[in-house]
């Protein structure tokens, strides 16, 4: 599903060169739930940005659902992002002036779905996260946990190949965090491929695979919850 091979990302500021990712390799199979952990500044965000096609890299190869993304122009990358990736952000990132319905509708509009198809997808995804009754609400009328569920519904509505979650429970209290994690686990059990960046070792432990990034490299990996269906992580520094 997602395959990175010796990917390097270097940021240059004046004479300072920072290796955000250094020969980073990772292979994520369809249906996996991978937790990416590591200290601040280790390269987790850079990995997630590259995985989400929001950032470029200087070396290596990256294939997403069989598509080699090297050399693709902005239109092609945007299209891939829209069709194959669902983002779940720490800050939920809902547009405050849009209703829940319109927030979920926005990426579907750009994808060119018909009105009927969009309505079906929006209602189905809101139903899945238990917020269909509040489709006309605005984000500020919801709790943090509910907003994150809307963000998950937005990510699900396009039926992406992979969900990228950037500390999805980082802004939530433990109860709401637990509800969101349960939802993600349910989605994974239904077949969704999920990569989640987290600082929380308990959450990392709860998922099937764990990748640790230190100084832009995969330093080690652990499988907190071994599963027969999960392939071993292929990682190299």
């Amino acid at each position: 599903m997602l395959k990175m091979n010796n990917v390097s990302r270097i940021y240059e500021t004046g004479t300072v060169r920072t290796h955000a990712l250094r020969n980073f390799s990772l292979d994520v199979q369809e249906g996996e739930f991978v937790a990416v952990t590591g200290p601040s500044g280790s390269g987790k965000s850079t990995f997630l940005n590259i995985a989400g096609l929001l950032d470029s890299f200087q070396q290596g190869q990256y294939t997403l659902d069989g598509v080699n993304i090297q050399g693709l122009n902005d239109n092609a990358l945007s299209s891939l992002r829209n069709e194959k990736i669902g983002f779940i952000f720490q800050n939920y990132n809902l547009i405050p002036d849009f209703s829940l319905y319109d927030n979920i509708d926005m990426p579907l509009r750009y994808r060119g779905f018909s009105a009927k198809d969009r309505k079906y997808r929006i209602e189905k995804s809101l139903e899945r996260v238990g917020l269909i009754a509040r489709k006309d609400y605005y984000p500020k009328q919801l709790s943090g946990g509910q907003q994150q569920r809307v963000a998950i519904a937005r990510a699900l509505a396009g039926e992406p190949k992979i969900l990228l979650a950037d500390e999805p429970t980082g802004n939530l209290d433990s109860l709401m965090a637990s509800q969101v994690m349960t939802l993600l686990e349910e989605l994974n059990s239904e077949g969704a491929t999920i990569i989640m960046v987290t600082h929380d070792p308990d959450q990392a432990r709860a998922v099937k695979r764990n990748v640790q990034i230190i100084d832009g490299e995969v330093s080690d990996f652990s499988i907190y919850a071994p599963s027969q269906n999960v392939s071993p992580i292929e990682a190299s520094a």
Binding site: N82, I85, I95, R111
Partner: peptide, 15 residues
């Protein structure tokens, strides 16, 4: 913020 969000959700520069 809106622009960044749209970009993240797959809206191209052309759009």
């Amino acid at each position: 913020f809106d622009t960044a969000l749209k970009r993240a959700l797959g809206v191209s520069k052309q759009q």
